[in-house]
Structure formats: C-alpha cells, structure tokens
Design a protein around this nucleic acid. Structure first.
Lengths: 212, 212
DNA sequence: GTGCGATGTATCGGTCCGATACATCGCGGT
DNA sequence: ACCGCGATGTATCGGACCGATACATCGCAC
C-alpha cells in the first residue's frame, strides 16, 4: 500500500521523505493520520533497490548558492523512474483483497485520476460488496444476538451500521456517476474548485446542484 | 489492544482461541473485521506467561464421556486469573494516545459496561477532541489546498469530513447522556433489546423516541 | 464410505507503527 | 550577542498485527 502511494505521489513531482509524508497526509487525511517514518524510509530504500525510484540532485544547476560550507548534506530528493511508472500502472490496475479494506481502498481512490474507468468501476463495486457484507454482519448481530450484548456494544454496532449504510449510498452515487458521464463529484451544497493538473485522464466535468 | 480485548472477553466466560476470535468479531464487528490467528495465539501465550490467564480443563468433571480414544487433545480453554482481572482494570482505566485511534477507541467503548463513568466520559471527550482535529485538518485541505487536488481526492476528503462531523455529533449525544442520567443509547427509530448480563455497572435505562 | 465445510491450533515472513536519536535552520526573546 | 525552541529533515529499533499456510478432527450430506 505504501509502495503504491509513494509511486503515485512521486509521479506528480520529485520529493524528499519529509515532503512525501506531508503530501501523503494531505491526500489521505480522510483515511489515515500520517505515515510513520519507520515505514517510510525503509520503503524508500526498498523502492530504490528495486529501481523504481532514484535519488535526484538537490538544487541541481540553476543556482550555485552557498555550495559547501559544512559539507551541506541534507535532503534526499527522490524521483520516479520509467520502471517505477510501469510498476505503478501494474499495481493500480490489479485488485487483490487488500484493495477493498479501508486503507487499500482509500489509496486506490486517491489515485483514481490516474486510473482508467473500467478499473475505477471494478474497485468501487468491490468496495461496495465488502461494505455490504460488513453491513449484513452487523444487522445479524443486532438482530439475532442483541440480547447477548450490553447497551454500549449495541450502540457501537448501530453507529457502525449507520456508517456502512451511508458509505454504500456514497458508493452507489459514485458508481452511477462513473457509468454514465464522468463526474466524480456528488452534488452538494458547496461548490467545487477548478483544476491545475499536468497529465491525467480526461478532466471530469463539474456539476453543481442545491440540496434542500 | 488485543490484550485488553482478550482479558475483557475472558472476564465474561472462559473460552478457547477459535471461540475468542468469533466473539471478538461479533463485539467489534463495527470496528474491525476479525483478529488474525497470527496475532491471537502468540498473544494468548504471552498473557499466559504473564499469569493473567490460565488453561482450564476441557469438559471438566460433570460428564466423563469418551475419555481417551485417540488421546483426544484438542481445544485449549483459557480462563482469566485474579491478576488478569487487575490487569484489565488497570488497562481500561488508563488512557494513552492509542486509546483514541479508531481501533483503540472501539475496544475501550466495547467494554464500557465494565468501565466507571468518569473514565467513560474522559475517553469519549478524548475521542471527540481527536476527531475534531481530524475534521479541522480536512476542512483546511478542502479550503486552502483544494485547487492542488483532483476531483476524486476532493470527493474522498468530503466523504471523510462528513464522517467526522457525524461522529462528533454521535459523541456529543453520548457525552450528554453520560453526564446527566445514564442511557448509553441514542434514541432511534427501532427499539432496544433487554439484558441478560451477570455482573456489571448499574444497567442503563431504556429510552425510546420517534424520529420523523 | 467418502468428500467437504466448519471447527480448531499453530507458525512464519512481512508490513507498519511508535519511540527515539540526532542535526540544521530561522526566528523571537532578553 | 546569545539562547532556546519549534519546524524541518534523515534514520533505526523493537514490537504489534496481518495474511498465507499447514495440519488435524468432527459431523453430515450425498
């Protein structure tokens, strides 16, 4: 998962570890808090060993300011290689079981702009299926086993069930949008900002509507 | 976390590993899928080594049916010890940072029936604070950095923000209930089942109300 | 009588986290 | 002029937990 996320981010621009962590936190803020350095740095080394990323020179040629005072050895900037882009495409295209758990789905979804429509649809439907299963499990427990559980546990299940139902509805809307036309945004009260991306699948259209 | 969950479950009745996993899945179904055996069995051994749980004889004395045909070595039933109960009380009473992440909060909440009210309140407020922080982070990204992100990422953030707001409201209600009176359940359309517990804090009152 | 799914215990490698350490930089306070 | 302090930045270590895998037994349907 981390591997996919790093490859995806470096595809937008070269970065060093610290920056990568911050961008990751911004992009996946809805899913997980922030990646740990204890995972990040070893993974970077692994990706480098595999030839999917390389170190890039810091402040390359443009300006030769304060060249070497105390040997000036600091940030290590990484950039993705051609093999890395292939690897990313491969990872983003194939869906294993871990693609549909909370974190896996979040990462895949965050890079939907670099994913073809068929794959997007497949992932959304897989996720929906998984959430529906969880929902059924919760309904079962709340139905059949309710008297075995205390009131707090029941309240927890109800809240979880609520979240499941809500996510299924969200996914339904995304799937519908995906199938006919291509608007990744679900109409809401607020409005949606413009775009400023480099290369990507065809930019999705904007749609806005009021909700009473 | 697993340690706390196991100690809590074994406090209700002795169980073997497989059973423990199923009960855990039922109790925490809203939070996480199911605990892996790769975590469960090592943890059980660790708890046993620490003296917090012990092996109990299977089918103890009541019936001496088919005593030994093929040496009959199967299920290993564990029960909690007095030290184990102390350990549980200690773990449930103290709150570290991990108490407020998704899994940690879920486990603590699932055992609220064995938690005193002051601790319940402390945990609910800590969780609320954490979710509020996440919510603010998402609002920031959706506000200040919106034009840097593609439409899919934005949609993900919006969905996450929605979930945060919803959970904060849920926690508010629980906190209010906790402070005055003691009804762990938030009024909903459905109704709440009875109780059949052994020992626990004073059984919470039932309340029901219609929502239009 | 035989296969097959549920029950049941157990290990192994790998991913990721949390704590910790350490070094530099810019800034405000005194 | 100096100091501290928070942000930036790289790095490691032990431990928690997962996913795959192996293997054995039981009951029951075909």
């Amino acid at each position: 998962m981390l591997e996919l996320a790093i490859l995806g981010l470096l595809q937008e621009s070269p970065m060093h570890g610290y920056e990568l962590r911050k961008e990751l936190a911004a992009k996946l803020g809805a899913i997980r808090a922030a990646i740990s350095y204890g995972s990040l740095y070893p993974t970077l080394r692994r990706l480098q060993a595999a030839g999917w990323i390389t170190e890039a020179a810091e402040t390359p040629a443009t300006a030769e300011e304060v060249p070497a005072l105390t040997s000036r050895r600091g940030r290590v900037v990484y950039k993705i290689t051609a093999e890395g882009k292939e690897r990313f495409a491969q990872l983003i295209g194939q869906a294993g079981p871990e693609t549909y758990d909370d974190t896996g789905f979040g990462v895949h979804f965050a890079f939907f702009a670099r994913t073809d429509q068929a794959t997007r649809l497949r992932i959304l439907e897989g996720r929906r299926r998984k959430i529906e299963e969880r929902r059924e499990g919760l309904r079962d427990v709340l139905g059949r086993a309710a008297e075995r559980l205390d009131a707090y546990t029941l309240e927890l299940q109800r809240h979880g069930l609520d979240a499941c139902e809500r996510e299924v509805r969200w996914l339904e809307e995304l799937i519908a949008n995906e199938r006919s036309g291509r608007a990744p945004t679900i109409p809401r009260a607020g409005m949606v900002g413009g775009r400023r991306d480099n290369d990507s699948p065809p930019p999705p259209g904007e749609s806005r509507k009021e909700r009473p």
